[in-house]
């Protein structure tokens, strides 16, 4: 590796010499390693670059793509409001999805066959049916249950009840659909994470008298994070875009508002581009976050040095540790 960078070693000189297996004089052995020339690769690079430039050119100068419209709507209030809803939907449904996922994963790993079966049925159903179908179903919940109430089940007395049509707005239906669906996927991710942790860890925790809940939260889950984080990042990025599905139930998200706009002004491509640019911004930010978090939890990660550095920098803390 270092040889290649060696100053003074003329890179161009080597290929010119005739190929030989003869052993050069000893002092020359350390001199240089050059790359074998690969003309095919250069051709491929050139072709790819040309194609990319041509594609970009045809799109950019296309008179049917109204860049002025794109510019006009990119920061439009309606669009920004939709963007806010998209972010809100993603964050809340991912958060709920994690809660459901951890719960269902723990049920799946329980000793009780009833709990295992219940959890299995949940993931089976919600991973097995299209999200689009689930969203439309939640939106039309009133058709199945016109009244939602809290009270004694099986036609017992009710404490409170609501009209389903009033409770289940587009946003609520979207949240229900997205988080319950996400929970099923998260359950599988969390389960795989928990199972990746050495069973000896559980026994070590048990041997010092920790409860199952303590073992899970203090020992198992922190270690499972390494396995959970990468697919979780993918789920998050995927969710940013999946929220666009709620446009079919008037979810008021970025896609819904873009659709409403182009149905009125017929600028379909321009508004799709406006929405796409925002989705790209969101997923790019999420990817950067994903990389940062992954590095933090990767197997070979350096221990959290930052904390020790902080302890040395903050005088109060250092003093406290010194007296301890």
């Amino acid at each position: 590796m270092t040889h290649r960078k060696m100053p003074g070693a003329a890179l161009g000189a080597a290929p010119a010499a005739a190929t030989t297996d003869a052993i050069p004089p000893e002092e020359d052995l350390s001199l240089q390693v050059t790359r074998r020339p690969r003309p095919g690769r250069w051709l491929a690079v050139l072709a790819a670059a040309l194609f990319a430039v041509w594609l970009a050119y045809t799109v950019i100068v296309n008179p049917n793509l109204h860049w002025d419209i794109v510019a006009k709507y990119q920061f439009d209030g309606v669009i920004l409001k939709g963007l806010g809803v998209t972010i809100q939907l993603t964050l809340v449904s991912m958060a709920l999805g994690i809660v459901i996922g951890v719960l269902v994963a723990v049920m799946q790993l329980s000793d009780s066959p009833v709990l295992r079966l219940t959890a299995g049925a949940y993931t089976w159903f919600f991973r097995g049916t299209p999200l689009l179908v689930q969203l439309i179903f939640w939106f039309n919940l009133a058709l199945l249950f016109p009244v939602i109430s809290i009270g004694v089940p099986f036609d017992g007395p009710k404490l409170i009840s609501w009209q389903s049509n009033q409770v289940i707005t587009g946003f609520v239906a979207a949240l229900l659909g997205l988080s319950i669906n996400e929970g099923a996927y998260m359950a599988e991710i969390v389960r795989a994470g928990i199972q990746s942790v050495d069973p000896g860890q559980r026994e070590a925790g048990a041997s010092i008298g920790m409860s199952n809940r303590q073992i899970l939260s203090r020992i198992i889950l922190p270690q499972a994070m390494r396995v959970i984080i990468p697919p979780f990042g993918n789920q998050f990025i995927s969710m940013l875009k999946t929220t666009s599905l709620v446009s079919v139930i008037a979810g008021a998200d970025l896609m819904t508002v873009s659709q409403h706009l182009y149905l009125a002004n017929f600028e379909v491509v321009a508004l799709l581009l406006v929405a796409s640019l925002w989705y790209l911004v969101l997923t790019t930010i999420a990817s950067i976050g994903q990389h940062a978090v992954e590095r933090r939890y990767s197997p070979g990660a350096a221990p959290p040095l930052r904390r020790r550095v902080l302890a040395n920098l903050v005088p109060g803390r250092a003093r406290k540790e010194a007296t301890a």
Partner: peptide, 29 residues
Amino acid sequence: RRQRERIGMVFQRFHLFPHRTAVQNVMEG
């Protein structure tokens, strides 16, 4: 759990908590 508190155990493959420092491992219980 109360009974296990009074019985310490050392395992063949240590089973230290890898996400905790040595002192944090000892403090955990």
